[in-house]
Amino acid sequence: NQASVVANQLIPINTALTLVMMRSEVVTPVGIPAEDIPRLVSMQVSRAVPLGTTLMPDMVKGYA
């Protein structure tokens, strides 16, 4: 089972991601792979992401 990136806190719209905002977790459906966490740092979210939400490619500007 592949771990995905999950929000560790509420991430407001247009916030630049930092390591403390993200954790890896095995979830369904699968989201952005956990190994991409270093690449996500400083990228902005395109919408508010609630705590515990799996990050999907369309939620991060410039990821897809």
Rank of each mutant, 00 (worst) to 15 (best):
G52W: 05
V60H: 00
V27M: 08
A64Q: 14
M22V: 06
V26R: 03
E35L: 10
L19S: 05
R47Q: 12
N14D: 12
A3M: 10
M21Q: 04
V26K: 05
G31H: 01
P38W: 08
A3F: 11
V60L: 10
A34D: 11
M43Q: 07
T18W: 03
V60P: 01
T28C: 15
L19K: 07
V60K: 00
V26W: 10
I13C: 05
Q9N: 09
A48Q: 12
Q44V: 11
N8R: 09
Q2P: 15
T54R: 03
R47A: 11
V20S: 15
T54A: 05
R39K: 13
R39P: 01
A64M: 15
A7E: 00
M56H: 11
M21F: 04
N8H: 15
S46L: 15
R47M: 11
E35K: 07
L40G: 00
E25H: 07
T53I: 11
R23N: 04
D36F: 11
I37L: 12
V5Q: 00
P50S: 13
V27F: 03
P57W: 14
M22C: 03
G31T: 02
N1F: 15
M59K: 02
L55A: 00
R39G: 10
G52R: 04
S42Q: 13
D58T: 13
K61L: 09
P38E: 10
V26L: 11
T18N: 04
P57R: 11
I11E: 01
S46F: 12
S24A: 13
V30A: 10
V20G: 11
S42K: 08
Q9V: 13
V27Q: 08
M21P: 00
N1P: 15
P29F: 04
G62H: 14
V60S: 01
L17P: 02
I32M: 03
V27D: 02
L17R: 00
P33C: 05
V45H: 00
V6T: 07
T15P: 02
V30P: 13
L40Y: 02
T28Q: 09
I37G: 05
T18I: 05
K61T: 14
V27P: 00
V45I: 07
I37H: 03
V30Q: 07
